[in-house]
């Protein structure tokens, strides 16, 4: 199966990185998706997309003030724009020599390293390893929309876990979140309410 490339690394730190991609690839990555950045042999960093943003450039600024914009101009601007679409990724773990760790990566990825969307198997491998240790990194990032990020992530992972019969994965993940957040009422209720909204109807089948 071919790996789905979603962009290349723009800048990186230990806790996360930002990837850039062309508009033509905007349909592939999504908020909450699990991505990976392979570095040298046997070492790759995993992350969750927590923000996708599109910066303006000078031409766009001029164009938005125009009365009528020709469709060809819009397409040209999108396809040939100089400023990439940026995806902010939160580092949630890494793999080294086949072993998955839910820890911050020892060293970040380098500029222009290719970022891939994780396949179903990679998602299963990463999310089934250990006991949801990677939730720590999400919960620590208070500036992020934690509830929505986790809800989106759980929504994306549950179907691939269900494919191999792990129907209770979302419940286990939620239970772990409750354990981690039970001393923080506002945060827990925010996350739980978001989960309830994000996975409507699906909970009944999981009990």
């Amino acid at each position: 199966m071919t790996a789905i490339e979603i962009g290349r690394l723009l800048r990186a730190g230990t806790t996360g990185f930002v990837a850039g991609c062309r508009v033509s690839r905007i349909g592939t990555p999504s908020f909450g998706a699990l991505v990976r950045a392979p570095l040298d042999a046997g070492y790759q960093i995993f992350g969750l997309i927590h923000d996708i943003h599109i910066d303006d450039d000078g031409l766009v600024r001029q164009l938005v003030t125009t009365e009528e914009i020709d469709q060809a101009v819009i397409i040209d601007n999108r396809v040939n724009r100089n400023v990439p679409i940026e995806m902010s990724v939160l580092a949630v773990g890494y793999q080294q020599d086949g072993n998955i760790h839910h820890l911050l990566p020892p060293r970040p990825a380098l500029s222009l390293d290719v970022i891939y969307l994780c396949s179903a198997q990679e998602m299963r491998d990463f999310t089934s390893s250990g006991r949801f240790g990677y939730f720590r990194h999400v919960l620590r990032s208070s500036e992020l929309p934690i509830g929505d990020l986790l809800a989106a992530h759980i929504n994306q992972v549950q179907p691939v876990q269900s494919e191999v019969g792990n129907e209770a994965w979302a419940l286990k993940a939620t239970q772990e979140l409750i354990i981690l957040l039970r001393d923080d009422y506002p945060a827990l209720m925010s996350v739980i309410s978001t989960l309830a909204d994000a996975v409507p109807g699906n909970w009944e089948g999981m009990s």
């Binding site: 419940l171 409750i178 827990l188 739980i192 309410s193 989960l195 309830a196 909970w203 009990s207």
Partner: peptide
């Protein structure tokens, strides 16, 4: 009354 029953049960079970 606000959450799906399985989710509420999970929450009550831990809190």
């Amino acid at each position: 009354t606000r959450l799906p029953i399985p989710l509420a049960n999970l929450l009550h079970g831990q809190t």
